[in-house]
Each structure stands twice: as C-alpha cells, then as structure tokens.
Design a protein around this nucleic acid. Structure first.
Lengths: 206, 206, 206, 206
DNA sequence: AATGAATGAGCATTCATTCAT
DNA sequence: CATGAATGAATGCTCATTCAT
C-alpha cells in the first residue's frame, strides 16, 4: 500500500494519514508506557484498538513505523526549540534556551519524549547494532559544538574540549528526562534552569 | 541454591561460589561483547563452557544473575574509588577524584563497565519498567549529594540544587562511558579530566 | 460475478470479460516472472495496475483465477497444435508434430507456458493435494493413447504399454520446458526435434 | 545445541541421533502426506508427537532439516542403485538397471521418494530461487551423460544429443513416480521396465 | 464496478525456563 | 551437581479474503 495510487480524491489520503497518525500515536503511548522491548506490534495494535494486520498494512514493518515516529517527533522538537535559540543574542543564553526549550517541549509532550528515548536506546538493526544509536547522535553533537565554537570565538566561552562538553550536555539532558520520567512530580523546568546554569558556568570564560 | 543456604558443608559452598563467579564472568564478557539484548542464557552458557541448565541451577533466573553481577561490579567500583576520594582534602578535588577514579576503573575493567551500562539500559522488570533505572540510583545520588553539601557548607561550592547536580554528574559520567564504548580509541582519561573541570566550574562558589 | 451470469445487459459482460482477460494476463506475466509462490494477489494486482479488491470482485478467489488461466492457455495450445497434427499422414510424423507444435507455441508464448508449468507444479487444494496434477492430465493421456493405438493398429508402432508411453511423452515434454525455462538460451526447437526422434524410436515397430 | 559437546558418553549422542531421525521421519511422512507447502514445522512436530520447539532445538532451522532429509535419502538411493548399475556389462542394461533400481527403491520407500520430489519442487531460498532446483540437477545430468557417452563410444548407442536425452530420462522417471503417487495401484515395476525399454530403443544404434 | 482498508490465521524462529536422569 | 532435552509463549511478518463505501 505504502507507495501507491491516491488517484484523485483527498479523502482516501486523509483516511490513510489519519490511520498512520493514529498508529504512531498508539506506538508512542505503548512505548512510553511499557518500554520499547515490550512494545510488540500486537500490543501497539491493541492500544490502537485495531488488528495486528493494520500496522503491517500501513507500514512496511516495525522499522518503518519507528522511523516515522522518530522523524515526526524530532521535527516537532526542532520546530519548537530552534526559534527560541535563534532569538537569543549571546551564546550563554542560547545554551539556556536550548535546555529550557527541550524541557518545555517534553513537559507538553511527555510520552513523545519518553518514547523517543526508549527507541534511541533499544531499537536495533537486524545485526544487533543500535538503529538510532550514538552514531546517529553525531549531527546533534556537531550542532552543539558549532554553538560552543561560536562562544569561544567571541570570547564569551573559555577554551574547553567541545566534544566532551557536547557529550556532557547531551547526557545530562537525557538524564534529566529519565529522572523526570521516574519521578513525575519532579519540577522539570526548575531542573532545566539549574542545568542551564551548570552549563553556562562550565563553559564561560574566567 | 539461593544465595544464603549452604545445606550441609563448606566444600559445596566453595564449588558453588566458584561456579557462580565463573558464570558471572561469562555473563560480563558476553554482555560486553554482543550487548544485553543478544546475551541469551544459551550464549552466556556457551561462553562459560557449561550447559544452559547450570545457570538455572545456580541462579533463580536471569534476573538474579544480573542482580549478582551488578552488585558485584558496583561493590568493586566503590572499593576502588572511595579511598581515592577520601584521600582528597577539598570538595573540588574530591569531585575530580570521583570522576577520574571511575574512569580509571573502567579503563582497567572495560568489559565490567560495558556490561554494567548495558544492563542498566536494557534490563527490565516483567511489567516493562527498568530494573536498575534512575530509581535504583538513589543511594548513588545521595552519596553525591553528601559530597556537594560538604562543599556548600565549607563555602567552597555555590548554592545549587544538589539533586539536579547529582543527576547531571551521574548522567554525564554514564554518557562518557557510552561514548567511549562506541569510540574505543577515544581518550577516556582526558575526557574524565575535562568532565572533572566542568563539574568543578559548575559547582564552585563565585 | 461467477463466469456465466451476465445479470442485465451485454455491455457489462464485455467490460467484465475485458477485466478478466486483463487480470489473467497480469497473472501470467507475474507468475512467469517471479514464480507461483511469490505471485500473491497483491503482486498480480499491481502488475495489472488495479487494486487487490478487483480480483476478488471478478474471481471467486485465487483458485478460480488459476482455473480460468489454465483453461484458457490449454485451449489456446490445443487450437494451435491439433491442426498441425491432423495434417500429418502417419503416426510417427504426428508424434513429431505434437512435440514440435507444443514447442513452437511455447517459443511464441513463453510466459504463458512458464506460468502454466508453475501453476501445475505449485497450485494445491486446501488439503494439500495438487490442483492440476497428473490426475487432471487424464484427457491428455487419453488423447495421446489414441494416437499410439492408431499407430499400433496400422503396424507402424510396436506393441508397447500406451499409458507408460503417454506418461513418458508428457513428462519429457514438461521437462524440456522446465529446462528451457532455467536455461533460456537453450535451443528449444532443436531439443524438440531430438525428443521427437527419441519418441519415434521408442515407439516404432522393429 | 547442534555443534556442541558430547563429552564422554554415547547415550546422549544416541538419544540426539534418535530424535533427529524421528523428526526427519516425521518430516518425510508429513511432506509426502500433505505436500511441502503445507508441511509447516508445527505440522511436522504434531506428526512427530513433539512440541514445535523440539525441531528448533535439534536443527538450526527448517533449511537444515530439509538438507539433512535430502542428503540422507539421496545417499540411501545411491547406495541402493549404484551397485546394481555397476553389475551390468553393457550400456543398455545399465540404463535398464538405473530405471529399475530407482523404481525398486521407491517401491520400498514410497514416502521418502514422494517427500524428496516435493522438496525438490517446492523448497525455495529466501530470495525465492529454488533450493534444490534444476541447477542442482546438473550433477545428475552429467552422470547420465557419462553413461550415454560410454555407450556411444562403444558403438552400442547411436549419436544423439546427450543433454536432451538426460532431460528426457530424468523427467520420464520423475513423471513415472508422480503418476504412481496419484495412482497407488499402478504397477510401478512394470512401468519401470517399459520405460527402460523405451530408453534403450531411443538410444541404441540402428 | 471498483476501491482501499482491515482482518485473522498461519508462518519460522527465539528464548527463559523446567525436568528426568 | 550437572546435563541435554523439551516446552510453549511470544515475536515480526505475509497473505487471501471480506467489506463498507
């Protein structure tokens, strides 16, 4: 079905998209709820209230479903956070905006964030290697490193190892979300502000 | 066979302990080598050179095997790192010693550390929740927080949220190991020194 | 929609027949191209450029589609070969004409012949027995046997078991096509001439 | 399990072999009975009176099971037929011995022969190509061709195309078995004698 | 007359666990 | 103590068929 004819009308395309969206939503809830390893297609289908076959009908396989989910959430996060970062006029504030922005998104879309984390950690290729693993984080690292270098060039930041800092920021952000997942009453935005402050202090010139 | 009862003599207990240690060692190598999801009991048994049944005989199940493994490695790390920390005479150096000590341990016991990380990430309870997640890190957080509070009391550290800092330190350390696992040529000790510097700057009083 | 009833008019019947022919043609190309086991209704529908439902609409099921396909091609072969046979004036030449005629048809209609062979080999009844196996070849055997008996009556052929000979001729012909299917550069008409010679020698009086 | 330690005793190895033999026997009966496409592992396990998992335990997969089955039966046939052929002192009698020998084996081991035929026809590689298909018949063809050439060199046989004749003999033999499968009361040995006669006449010098 | 959507049974395979010996 | 054998539930996936529109 995937790659086929939507000859004339929009209704079909609409139904199709609605179902895909519904299935992705069910996948997000299921993964966030029971973890990726337990989120079988059968369970996702049950959550969506449809039969197992429906998923296979709308997606080429579990992998495509995950790809769509990841891409969708990723895009959404970027659209939400990037404008906030660009609105800042110095590197330190950009750092804070980055952390705060992602946290704000997570606060609004808790399951999406949890599912994304689960998929990143658990999804594997057939050969056993991670599907969205550290290898895939490279672009993220590089974008953070770009930000750091700007700050270093302008003299706002001290002269630190950008890769180590990127790993720290990325890990600390993920850790913050994981902590929040386990302690849902934790004040995420306060934590994000703290983390922003930590990063600013860790990076700023003497 | 549960870990406490040694029904009749001590000889059994000795053999028993040797077998358990051998199986745990095999589990560490297997998990570090092929990742937790691919480390089936069959594979661990093959690595140990024993039959699958042996594992079930000596451990109540995969879960208990993992518990023993985690506890053992954890204890070992603590025994290796704590003396180094206590040898310092100010909070900042203790922070640095903490990060450096764990990294040094990891450098010497790469598989143990890799296996630990894999288990933390992947092991689940039957209901799908993480077995050794952030929830189980509470003692670790508290020990870090104790260190921070000492520094704050002495005026060496600024007045930050200790829980957020503990989460950051813990996550950043884990992230450092994960990055090193994926990039084995990465200079772990240099990264640890950088991380130590980051933490010192993030915590110190103005 | 069963093959006989044309509910109201003839125009429908015309469209109906055109669709059926189109689907059968697509089935032939698909089966010849990817083999019966891979020729799912979905794939046939794609080849035909119609939706899967259309096939179910025009045919009671995959089985009826195959029946129609087989009957159609069979009829076509008979119409092509029988006149050639009847044009001969002795039994040996008829034998040769039979083999040569079928080969000539196959050369001109390669996909039809390949599809037919695939269906004969692979199509099964729900209970697992072949749908178009040797059991269905009875009319074919009987027609060959008639030819043999003519030759025996006229003294041209020796006194052999006609059923065994019919099985041999039928199998050897099928085998020739299968070999040609796998080795498309094989000289089919030369092979057919050889087979004709073999049969003539196997049947003729001393 | 497959490739492992049978440290000291023979009992284990014996049990192991017995189970493998039992499963292969069940596979033969199942395939002969319901055809390869319907012979799922579940059905074979049911026929053997064991659980599905047993098959996976003793064989790496369906493919290895089929390989073992094919190799075993093939070897058995060769061991039964080759001595008979070598006992002949002229090419014509060798031809007759070949056909008669295979038929005699089939008469004694009906299901084995039927299963073998089914597997040859139906078993596919993951990519859809035949696993034991015409490509695999090459050795058989060549062995027959060797026999023909001997006869041609000695002047006993006429100068025919050996490949076409090999295809004919192979197909006619298979066809004979298929006919016998469908008509179990058919006199197989008489048919084999007839086929031998046909081949001798088709091949002998004028 | 035709469609896309949905179904559910069936497939081979993996794996932690149990058990008689 | 240790084993190999066996189990059965679960997984992702395919596909002929059904059906409302």
């Amino acid at each position: 079905m995937r790659s086929e004819n939507k000859p004339t009308g929009q209704k079909r395309s609409f139904i199709e998209e609605a179902r895909r969206a519904q299935i992705i939503a069910a996948a997000i809830e299921t993964i966030a709820g029971v973890g990726y390893p337990n989120a079988s297609l059968a369970r996702i289908a049950r959550e969506a209230g449809v039969s197992k076959g429906v998923i296979s009908y709308h997606f080429a396989g579990k992998d495509e479903l995950m790809d769509q989910l990841v891409t969708g959430v990723y895009t959404e996060i970027a659209e939400s956070v990037i404008p906030e970062i660009l609105a800042q006029d110095n590197a330190a504030d950009m750092l804070r905006a980055h952390v705060r922005g992602v946290a704000a998104y997570a606060l609004e879309h808790r399951s999406r964030m949890a599912a994304l984390a689960q998929i990143f950690i658990h999804a594997r290729r057939p050969d056993g290697s991670p599907r969205y693993g550290v290898g895939e984080s490279e672009p993220l690292f590089e974008s953070l490193e770009g930000l750091y270098r700007e700050g270093q060039k302008s003299g706002e930041f001290r002269d630190f190892d950008v890769r180590a800092m990127a790993v720290t920021q990325q890990s600390a952000t993920d850790g913050m979300f994981e902590y929040w997942r386990v302690h849902p009453d934790h004040d995420l935005m306060a934590h994000a502000a703290e983390l922003g402050e930590q990063l600013v202090r860790a990076t700023r010139a003497d």
